[in-house]
Design a protein around this nucleic acid. Structure first.
Lengths: 108, 108
DNA sequence: TTCCATGTGCCGATTAACGGTATATAACTA
DNA sequence: TAGTTATATACCGTTAATCGGCACATGGAA
């Protein structure tokens, strides 16, 4: 359980859940929306990431419901997950600012 | 040659080279500095990444020199490398902004 | 004299995402 | 009616990239 930087899919999953509990498929569509269609999570990526993030105590199962015989498992951020997303956001900002400065981009 | 998102080490290597040509060890110390000591590149990570980024035409060898019998191989960003760093920076900013908005952080 | 800085390079292990497939039902479309 | 899309979770083999350590070599500092 090292404190490695989150990859983009995991980061966006946490970001999606920062707005409130959501189930797997809902996260999938939400991530596509908040990334303007750039990131489309594959089923393998999504559910594997949910398992890993849950093991790491960044997420936990909120509740489960059955809609039309189909299971919906809702996840929510734990306090640690929220803290982690906050620090990861700071990391992205710092890296983007460092690159912007050296590239001579606006608001470096 | 997919267009996957850059990992943090690769991103910071390009960032380091955005300031001008630099050799491996110089990049290593530079990255530690611009990340405020948070990222310390291992030799394995650094030279493997330089090889990959060179194969991907994001970097190229600027020149080589011998200092005290010791080789220094300088790399520089290609135009494609600079373009890539620019788009990666935009990606980081967009992701950070999306998370900041949902976390209720300042300047979301 | 031993450690640290400088410098490049190789290699096995680990991790996480990719990409596809499986399973199932309902709704929409050609 | 047949095929595709949307909803929903799960498994699995492959690939990519970093981690972590070791090797080799020199020069200077503690």
């Amino acid at each position: 359980m090292s404190i490695r930087p989150l990859q983009e899919p995991a980061f966006l999953i946490l970001t999606s859940l920062a707005a409130g509990p959501q189930h797997g498929y809902g996260i999938m569509t939400d991530v596509a929306k908040i990334s303007a269609g750039r990131v489309k999570l594959r089923a393998g990526t999504l559910y594997a990431a949910l398992d890993r993030l849950t093991s790491a105590r960044l997420l936990e199962v909120d509740h489960e419901e059955i809609v039309d015989t189909r299971l919906r498992r809702y996840y929510r951020l734990t306090p640690a997950g929220r803290a982690r997303l906050t620090s990861e956001t700071a990391r992205l900002r710092a890296n983007a600012a460092a690159a912007a400065r050296r590239l001579g981009l606006a608001d470096a």
